[in-house]
Design a protein around this nucleic acid. Structure first.
Length: 163
DNA sequence: GCCAACGTTGGC
DNA sequence: GCCAACGTTGGC
């Protein structure tokens, strides 16, 4: 698959973990709750069905890349922005002009063992990994093809293309 | 729990 | 459009 791009998406496992994804219907979930414009723009404007995505557990023990997924839908509105009882409700968003978009992602594989954050430092090929940059809070980050490959090698994993 | 590094808000 | 105040993220 040419023009396939690669991403890393963070989730706090207390909110939604890779095991939650595995147990989801069709092992697929809508990536709800993104309320950062840059992250939204990646999903809305740049992701394509079939893109590879690494699943990162943030605010967790251990901090780690725990598996991979692929983008499995076109972008569409995040329904939680319209639900007043949701913490992701946005009163300024309308059905006609939704502010927050998301994509579906589908499970590919779990890394066993996970690739620990602490083991990513000093790895050749990951010098520019956005995840490791100080103050990098972006919850969706682009990866180079090389970074994608190197992390798969660290995981002892084969890049399975499922879509 | 701390706090640095952001991103957003809103008065002006 | 500026920017101070505020809120959040997320590693440590």
């Amino acid at each position: 698959m040419s023009n396939r791009r690669f991403w890393l998406m963070k989730s706090e496992p207390d909110e939604f973990s890779i095991d939650d994804l595995i147990q989801s219907e069709n092992q697929t979930t809508r990536w709800t709750g993104i309320r950062n414009y840059q992250a939204r723009n990646f999903m809305r404007d740049e992701m394509k069905v079939g893109d590879g995505v690494l699943f990162y557990h943030s605010n967790a023990k251990p901090l780690a890349i725990v598996g991979s997924m692929y983008v499995s839908s076109e972008p569409y509105p995040d329904y939680l922005q319209f639900k007043p009882d949701s913490k992701y409700f946005d009163p300024k968003s309308t059905e006609e002009n939704p502010r927050w978009m998301l994509v579906d992602v589908t499970f590919v594989q779990k890394f066993d063992p996970p690739v620990l954050r602490e083991d990513l430092y000093d790895v050749q090929g990951l010098e520019d990994l956005m995840l490791l940059k100080k103050g990098s809070r972006l919850s969706i980050q682009p990866l180079t093809a090389r970074e994608w490959e190197v992390i798969h090698e660290l995981a002892g994993a084969v890049d399975i293309i499922k879509p």
